[in-house]
């Protein structure tokens, strides 16, 4: 599903050029659950942004489901992203002015789905996330765990092939964190590919494979045997 070869990403500020990613080679198969770990500033989020087609690499190749994405224009990336990718963020990034239902509905609106189909899909996913009773509430009326469940619902409502999670439990207590990780595992077991950036050793154990980044380079890759051990 994801094939990255000799990928480089550099940022220019006024005076210096910083190399955020340096010669990264990475392959993620369909149905895989991969965790990217590493200290702050090692390039985890940059890599995730490129995988999520929010950013272009400076050099190298990135193929998503066989398509070269590296040189695409923003409009083309947006089109490819729609329906294929779901995002889960550390700080949830729900829109405060929209209700739970409306937040989850948003990606479907951008996919131009009909109103009835949207209603059906949103309610289904809300029920699955056990948050349907809160559909009319606004984000600030929910607990952190509930907010992240809504964010996950929003990420999966389009039934994407790939979910990208950026520290999904970073703002949650351990009980809610476990709940969120269980949800992601469940989605993975149903066939969704997941790439997750995390600081947490505990969370990384949910993944099939852990990729360690340091100073913009992959330093180790390890396979987890006991998948779902903590379920």
């Amino acid at each position: 599903m994801i094939q990255i070869q000799n990928l480089k990403k550099s940022f220019r500020t006024e005076e210096v050029e910083t190399l955020a990613l340096n010669n990264v080679n990475l392959k993620v198969e369909e149905g895989e659950f991969a965790a990217i770990m590493g200290p702050s500033g090692c390039g985890k989020s940059t890599l995730l942004n490129i995988i999520g087609m929010l950013d272009n690499p400076t050099e190298g190749s990135y193929k998503f489901a066989g398509h070269e994405v590296g040189g695409l224009k923003e409009r083309q990336r947006t089109e490819l992203r729609k329906g294929n990718l779901g995002f889960v963020f550390q700080s949830f990034n729900l829109i405060d002015e929209l209700t739970v239902f409306e937040n989850v509905e948003l990606p479907l609106i951008y996919l131009k789905e009909s109103k009835s189909s949207r209603r059906e899909k949103v309610m289904k996913v809300l029920e699955r996330m056990k948050i349907a009773h809160r559909e009319k509430h606004f984000p600030h009326q929910l607990s952190g765990g509930q907010q992240q469940r809504v964010a996950i619902a929003r990420a999966v409502v389009t039934n994407p092939k790939l979910i990208l999670a950026d520290e999904p439990t970073g703002n949650l207590d351990s009980k809610n964190g476990i709940e969120v990780m269980n949800l992601l595992t469940e989605l993975n077991q149903e066939g969704t590919t997941i790439v997750m950036v995390t600081h947490s050793d505990r969370d990384s154990h949910y993944a099939h494979r852990v990729i360690n980044l340091f100073d913009g380079q992959i330093v180790t890759e390890s396979q987890n045997r006991a998948v779902g051990a903590m379920m």
Partner: peptide, 16 residues
Amino acid sequence: TKEIGVRKVLGASVGQ
């Protein structure tokens, strides 16, 4: 800003 970012990540075009 944040809302615009979220919408764009979720597939909104510049025009939208």
